[in-house]
Simulated scan of single mutants.
Amino acid sequence: MSDLLTPSQTVGPFLSLGLTWPAGYQVVPEGSPGAIRITGTVTDGAGEPVTDALVETWQADADGRFDHPDDPRGASGSGFAGFGRCATDEDGSFRIVTVKPGALGDGQAPHVDVSVFARGLLDRVVTRIYFPDEEAANAADPLLSSLPPERAATLVAKDVGEDGLRFDIRLRGAGETVFLVV
């Protein structure tokens, strides 16, 4: 038996082999009533784009309900899956077309849950996208209000006019996005 360590390996980048699908970025079809576009870039600690990441979103419907039996109020019956998945492109960019979720009724501001899978990560990282037009709800949100303002700002998307919202994800380094322990 040897005392030498076995070299470590990262997971992937094999995400595109089966975890993506062409319309996965469409939680709702573009042009649907209330549809919004969220775009962003995933970058590493050096600020370089991560070209082989997978961004996954999950959210409530516009009424703040989930069509899932685990919703404490019971499944909404809306048929809204609330799930999206988009691989980053050669610029590290992603996009999701969805609707703004309603408040959940438990003090949390409207938000979209986000998981990021990428090379060098042995497990996904989880964060949230909050909405810039929800100042009062964001100020009262238990997560956002527990963070210093400069850290909370990494969780609030930016309004970019007709192009929708922008939410960049920095995996490490200065301006690192806040990630949650789940």
Rank of each mutant, 00 (worst) to 15 (best):
S2A: 12
D3K: 03
D3S: 06
T6F: 02
L19A: 09
T20Y: 07
G24T: 01
Q26S: 06
V28W: 09
P29S: 14
E30F: 07
A35G: 10
A35P: 10
A35S: 15
T39Q: 15
T41D: 01
T41M: 09
V42A: 11
G47W: 04
E48T: 11
V50Q: 08
T51R: 12
T51N: 09
D52A: 15
W58R: 10
W58Y: 11
Q59L: 14
A62E: 14
G64R: 06
F66Q: 03
R73H: 09
A75H: 09
S78M: 01
F80K: 01
F80A: 04
F80G: 02
F80R: 00
A81Y: 04
A81E: 09
G82M: 05
F83T: 03
R85L: 08
C86G: 09
A87W: 04
D89V: 07
D89W: 02
S93E: 15
A103Q: 02
D106E: 05
D106V: 00
V112C: 02
V114N: 10
A118M: 05
R119S: 13
L121P: 01
L122G: 14
L122H: 11
D123Q: 07
V125N: 04
V126P: 00
F131V: 02
F131K: 07
F131R: 02
E134N: 10
E135R: 12
A137V: 11
N138T: 07
A140T: 13
D141M: 06
D141S: 08
D141V: 06
S145P: 05
S145G: 10
P148V: 07
P149A: 15
V156T: 12
D159N: 14
G161I: 13
D163H: 11
L165H: 07
I169P: 11
R172S: 15
T177C: 08
F179V: 02
